[in-house]
Structure formats: structure tokens, C-alpha cells
């Protein structure tokens, strides 16, 4: 399809450990992400979610298969991608604004123009007035918001997130999910988010990719036809409940429920 941003076909990844054993982390992974879509990947830990995300980010070599961005083979990191890890990974010797500006600096983009962008995004995530603070003066949730701002600042087409709210408490997490949806709606980016929380996966997504372990593979892809914009009330709707229990039942049948 022509409006696919990301196409993955027959993707394989095998790690070689130092002792010489092989770990089959991804097996025959096939999927596509449409332009502007929000896709989540859910599965128990160890099923290869981070491996998949790192391959898409171009920081991990695949063993076999095809990964394309707009029909072009993706070899190595791309200027069109923004990434967020589970930990905020802020540089402690840089202020919030300096941290956010990292991609702009690395990619030698116009600093004055993107500085305005950075300040606009910081305002959008509720960190107006924190630009000149250092990371250790911020709470965990605020730090992760800086991490998300950093992933957005250079205006990438694709946002890759690996359990970005995994380290936050439940309440902050719900708030951050809402905020993320708002940012995604406003910025019209394509998003791929990895999580091991089933409700989170359903709440955010247009489609949920369900993975199972040993070897890591896609066991099904579910359409989420809940209306947007979504509020926390969605969680109480029967449609939401059906999707969550379908995924949960799926993991239960595999005996791998830990989410």
C-alpha cells in the first residue's frame, strides 16, 4: 500500500551470546504501519518488543528480512525517527532545553528555528518555565516528558517508544497516556509504542500488535475501533473491555500472562 510509512516483512533476529548460544528473539515478523497511525505492540517481557523497536530505530542489526520506510530499505538510524526509551536518559550536565535540542544539534538543523519548536513542545507537555532547569531538579514524570519532547523536536514522521511510562506510578501513567494522545493528535505523527500493559495498549492504539515469546513472533493484530478523541471514560466501555479480555485470554491460552 502506498500510504504505509513502515513495512516489515519476514523479519528475523537471532542474538549470539558470548558463550556461543543463540537466542531466537524475533521470528518471521510481518506488519505495516500506516501514515498517521498509532500502533501499539503488547506482549510479556522477553517476547522481543525492545528488539523490534531497536531494529526499527536502526540501532540493532537484523538477521534477515525486510524493513522499509516509505518503500525505501531502512539501514541505520534515520533523521525522520524520534525515540523514547523506558528511562528518560537525559544528560545531567545539560539543561532541559539543551537536552531537548540534542537531535537538532546532532543533525545540524537550524537552531534558532527549532528552539522555538522546543519551547512550544515544552509548553505543550506542561513544562513551560522549566527550560533552564537541570534534569535532577525534575520529577520522574517530568523527566519522561522532556524525553518525549526531545523525540518530537526535530519534527520526525515516526515516533518510536519503548515502554515510555513503565517506570511511572499508575496515576501519572494514566495522565501521561492522555497527554501523549493529545500530542499525537496535535502533531499528526505516526507512532509505534511498546508496552506490556494490555489496557494501555488498547487505550492508545488504532491497532494492537499482540506478540508471544520463544521465539518472539506476532500472534495477532487487532483493530481498535474506539472513537477518538479518547478520554479515560473509554476504559469503562464494553468495547474496551472486550478487547482487553480478548488479548488477556490469548496470553492465558499461551500460559504467559504477566501483563
Amino acid at each position: 500500500m502506498s500510504n504505509d510509512l513502515i513495512t516489515v516483512k519476514g523479519l528475523e533476529k537471532t542474538y549470539r551470546t558470548r558463550e556461543g548460544t543463540r537466542i531466537h528473539a524475533l521470528s518471521n515478523v510481518d506488519f505495516a504501519v500506516r501514515e498517521g497511525e498509532f500502533v501499539t505492540v503488547v506482549g510479556p517481557s522477553g517476547c522481543g518488543k525492545s528488539t523490534l523497536l531497536k531494529i526499527l530505530a536502526g540501532i540493532l542489526r537484523r538477521s534477515a528480512g525486510i524493513v522499509q520506510m516509505r518503500g525505501q530499505g531502512l539501514e541505520g538510524p534515520s533523521r525522520e525517527v524520534g525515540v523514547v526509551f523506558q528511562a528518560p536518559v537525559l544528560l545531567p550536565w545539560r539543561t532541559v532545553l539543551e537536552n531537548v535540542m540534542l537531535p537538532v544539534e546532532i543533525q545540524r538543523r537550524d537552531r534558532t528555528r527549532f528552539r522555538e519548536e522546543a519551547l512550544r513542545y515544552l509548553k505543550m507537555v506542561g513544562l513551560e518555565g522549566f527550560a533552564d532547569k537541570y534534569p535532577n531538579e525534575l520529577s520522574g514524570g517530568m523527566q519522561q516528558r522532556v524525553g518525549i519532547t526531545r523525540a518530537l523536536v526535530h519534527d520526525p514522521s515516526l515516533l518510536l517508544m519503548d515502554e515510555p511510562f513503565g517506570a511511572l506510578d499508575a496515576m501519572t501513567r494514566e495522565m501521561m497516556n492522555l497527554e501523549l494522545l493529545r500530542i499525537w493528535t496535535e502533531s499528526r505523527k505516526t507512532a509505534l509504542l511498546v508496552t506490556h500493559s494490555i489496557p494501555e495498549a488498547v487505550f492508545l492504539a488504532d491497532r494492537v500488535i499482540v506478540m508471544s515469546p520463544r521465539p518472539g513472533r506476532i500472534s495477532e493484530i487487532l483493530e481498535v475501533d474506539l472513537p477518538r478523541p479518547r478520554t479515560l471514560e473509554v476504559i469503562n466501555s464494553p468495547a474496551f473491555g472486550r478487547l482487553v479480555s480478548a488479548i488477556r485470554a490469548h496470553f492465558q491460552s499461551l500460559g504467559t500472562l504477566d501483563a
Binding site: 531497536k54 540501532i59 538510524p77 534515520s78 525515540v83 526509551f85 537531535p103 546532532i106 526535530h154
Partner: peptide, 17 residues
């Protein structure tokens, strides 16, 4: 830390960067 380096590389940082 490894993830600090991975993050910079993901943003297309060169070895020198």
C-alpha cells in the same frame, strides 16, 4: 551508560558526536 549511547546513535549521532 549503554542506553545513553544508543539514544544518541538513534538520533543519527556520529562516532565523534
Amino acid at each position: 551508560p549503554q542506553d545513553q549511547i544508543e539514544l544518541l546513535v538513534a538520533f543519527t549521532a556520529s562516532r565523534w558526536q
